[in-house]
Write a protein that binds this DNA or RNA. Sequence first.
DNA 1: TCTGGGGTCCTAGGACCC
DNA 2: TCTGGGGTCCTAGGACCC
Length: 426
Amino acid sequence: MPKIFALVDCNNFYVSCERVFNPKLENKPVVVLSNNDGCVVARSNEIKAMGIPMAGPYFKIKDQLDKVGAAVFSSNYSLYGDMSNRVMNILQTFCQNMEVYSIDEAFLDVSFLNKKDLEEFGRDLVIKIKQYTGIPVCIGFGETKTLAKLANEIAKKDGKNLNQFKGAFSICNQEAKEKYFSEIAVKDIWGIGRMYNKKLQELNVQTVADLISKSDGWIRSNLKLTGLKTIQELRGISCINLDDVNEAKKSIISSRSFGKEVVEYKHLQEAVASFASRVGQKLRKNKTVAGLITVYIMNNRFKEGKAFLSGSICLPTPSNYTPDLIKSSLEILDKIFVKGLKYKKAAVMVTAIQPENSIALNLFENTIQTTHKKAIIMKTFDTINKRFGSNTIQTGRESFDKTWKLKSEHRSRQFSTNWEELLEVV
DNA sequence: TCTGGGGTCCTAGGACCC
DNA sequence: TCTGGGGTCCTAGGACCC
């Protein structure tokens, strides 16, 4: 049976979350900044209309924002995460077969619907989500994920001018394809990024229609295998399946840019230890262990003389035990650290991830008893931090003053996940 | 002064094997 | 002077996504 996918995408998600709890922001220009108040990561329509780009550095556009009295927020991930869960829970009641693709997007397998009913189903969903959560969404329908993405783009653009589709659009019929394929630029296709767009411009390929008329061989040689999959998807041949959400991640990373440059080894150790600890938490949450750990340290990439240092260690036994992860991370740091550099960012990454119940014990280092003991310690650790707030307890290597800590000067309150902060509003 | 963080997949090239 | 040809595995780096 041919498939039909829906892509549900929250409009200007972080901005919309801020507006739910602060309705005065409605119809006003609003931006949300990345960690460290570095870049713009969400823009209201008013900001988009000003031509302010996504991911542009804040310091370059600050004056422009001040001039129009824009509201500026630091990222408030506990708020956005909680709002995201609410939206996803509602979607789940309408469609069990679903993939949460990102914090603000989900693919649904709606092959059970009749093609002519798609937009009506979509509009109903748009209204319900807005009613129950306050978040506006757009929905696109297509025979493949890439087409659903494209349909979603069309619904979004339409919302800014005509609003004839009322948030839901299907590209499952031939007329719609003919009309829009010749209008939409290749850069708006899911899977065509900056570099591929540049290349296509050079080859004078402008629209979706131009692109799908090319031969497979042409696409393969210019856009590689990934590009070929994208084009097949545009032709209606599904190559990208709905992902199993429960599938284990292949890598987990914790990294931060520092609020100011770090020169002291001691501070770098603290940072790396906290990133390792964070990685441990994520592994345990997924009930997984990691076999390989990698540490990166780097200086400011926008200044002269780029330095990027990294090293890896295979753990003797795959682990999610924080002290093990910290010990290995610090060993790596010791090997790669170069004195005299001004460090701007560090990261801890783990790979070779597997389910925790599948570990083959290393005869020399572990017995079932010590593994069990470690698990109990970590469980206690996680429970306390969950109950009383993250970082209530930390390992001794992580320090409590965190001189390298990032900036977050405009964060809104954690209205939906923190009682104390909600009460400040009243 | 100030430029995010967390992922995925693919490819090219090197090391090593017979 | 000649300098194969097939594999595998690993890693770094590039491209993409949100």
